[in-house]
Simulated scan of single mutants.
Amino acid sequence: MITSDDELDAKLRQLFADDRLGGLQPKEGAGETIVAGARRRRNRRKTMTAAGGVAMASVLVVGGVTFAKVQERDTQAAMSTAASQAAASGAAPESTGGGGTALPAPPGQTSQSNSAPLTTSTTQKTTPTTAAKPDGPTKIMTGSLLGHSGLGNLTLGMTEAQLTAAGIIFAKESGTTCAFGKVTKVTGQVGDIRIYLSETAGVTAILPASSHTPEGVGTGSTVEDVGTIYKVPTNGQLPSVNLGTTSYEFALSNSKVKSVVLKANNRQGCG
């Protein structure tokens, strides 16, 4: 292999002087021209080789920088994903010794950290207790609502003609001038209702089988509750409760209200 321009020049001159050329002699200056051309081609190859090396080196440098950036971006993306998963699960990301955030360990490997081991807390169930009954009387709100002047469309003082006009049917069971009997078709009626009907005073008393007053006294109320609600002394018994022109009277059974009766204060001896 020819390693220098001088060696190439010597080889070419030796070739031109070779006897095997049959005495042929190149033109004057031809040798110099050939040697110069050979030198140019040799220099061109060196230049191309050098340029190729520089280009290759540039490619390697650029590729290395690009790979480093891609690797850094992938690392940051992985760290961000790990932090997001830890935040979504409510757990803190694992901490590395250098203050950074460690990526989750691959499957089959155990992630080591300096954090304390997780502990499982056991919450004891408590059995709810029934609230104590508040102080005060128990109010009854079952049965027909027996107001201070009547029940539904049935009111004290109504005549038999007025009962019929209101659509109430009266079935007399006893009496003449002071009749006693059962009424039906009364609005708000619950169970049987009986009345006293005077020829001169109209309806003087209403006796529902099951009822309660607007204040909450009714079938099942205790004597104490009635005395507390209406502020009357009881002594084991219940007096009538005066409402002005009407009154409540209570029928008792085993110290509890069995029924409530609404009466007109001016009954004229009926009921």
Rank of each mutant, 00 (worst) to 15 (best):
D5M: 07
D9R: 14
A17H: 10
L21F: 12
T33K: 14
I34C: 06
R41G: 09
A55V: 12
A57Q: 06
T66S: 14
F67R: 08
Q71I: 02
E72L: 08
R73V: 03
M79F: 03
M79N: 04
S80Q: 13
A82K: 05
A86D: 03
A87H: 03
S89I: 01
G97C: 02
G99Q: 05
A102Y: 04
A105D: 07
T120Y: 10
T123I: 15
T127W: 11
T129V: 11
A131I: 05
P137V: 13
P137T: 10
G143T: 01
G143N: 01
L146N: 04
G150Y: 04
T155H: 08
L156R: 00
L156S: 01
A161I: 08
Q162N: 07
Q162W: 02
T164G: 00
G167A: 10
A171S: 13
K172S: 13
G175Y: 12
C178V: 12
F180V: 11
V186Q: 11
V186C: 12
Q189L: 09
S198L: 06
V203M: 03
T204Y: 10
I206K: 01
L207R: 11
H212F: 00
V217T: 12
G220T: 06
G220I: 13
S221G: 04
T234W: 02
P239A: 10
N242H: 05
G244D: 07
F250I: 03
N254G: 02
K258A: 14
V261L: 08
A264F: 01
N265K: 14
N266P: 01
